[in-house]
Design a protein around this nucleic acid. Structure first.
Length: 206
DNA sequence: CGTCCAGGTCTAC
DNA sequence: GGTAGACCTGGACGC
């Protein structure tokens, strides 16, 4: 779940002399992902257009009511009635997205695990496939790709935008402008962006 | 009680 | 390709 098999040396080499990111070269950058891409996609859809309390409510219902304490299998989510998504998870319009996604994964029509970097697909192709999923837009796509170890895209949402203004000291900054400023980080642009925003989460060295 | 919006996305121009 | 409106839900906020 921390992708410990992944070699971060290329990223650390890129930032070792970077004024804003060299601190991270001592071992930062691993994101906690779910065991399956399916789970990451479901959870990410549950973060869209709602407060964090809503995300907790939806995912808790999936785990407690359908998975008996663990994240449910696609076939279990597919078999859950519409009223579960409406009345228990209170997922609103996301309910139909989640049930259809689970159905397609359970049937084998959709293989999300194939999107992992070790399976060889190009970032652009993975991005295209993720954006094709109902409920997955630019934010969710970038977020899911980060979690599976594809760090090119920057995650823009109502938390990262103001967080960037605070860190950068700018008054305004369009998404395009921010993307441009992170272009030097190439395939690690999204990870560099995330680390700059979350630097305060890492305890300062004594 | 009505409005706004939170770790957005989809559709229709 | 860029942008209003609608969309489930519920907590915060103003009145």
């Amino acid at each position: 779940m921390f992708r410990l098999d992944e070699d971060f040396a290329p990223f650390y080499a890129l930032i070792e002399n970077d004024a804003a990111l060299s601190w991270a070269a001592k071992g930062a950058g691993r994101l906690l992902a779910a065991p399956t891409v399916f789970e990451d996609v479901v959870k990410t859809i549950c973060t869209t257009n709602c407060a964090w309390s809503g995300t907790v409510r939806m995912v808790s219902a999936l785990v407690n009511d359908l998975g008996a304490g663990a994240f449910p299998e696609p076939k279990t989510m597919a078999a859950a009635p519409v009223r579960f998504y409406r009345d228990a998870a209170r997922a609103g319009y996301r309910g139909a997205y989640l049930k259809a996604l689970a159905r397609d994964v359970a049937s084998g029509a959709l293989d999300l695990e194939l999107l992992r970097p070790e399976c060889g697909l190009l970032d652009a192709e993975v991005e295209e496939r993720l954006l094709a999923l109902p409920g997955v837009g630019p934010y969710a796509c970038a977020h899911i790709m980060m979690l599976i170890g594809r760090y090119h895209r920057l995650v823009f949402d109502s938390w990262t935008r103001p967080a960037y203004l605070r860190v950068s000291g700018r008054r305004r900054a369009s998404d395009r402008a921010i993307e441009r400023s992170f272009r030097p980080y190439g395939p690690f642009a999204g990870l560099a962006f995330w680390l700059m925003l979350t630097r305060g989460w890492v305890p300062a060295e004594g």
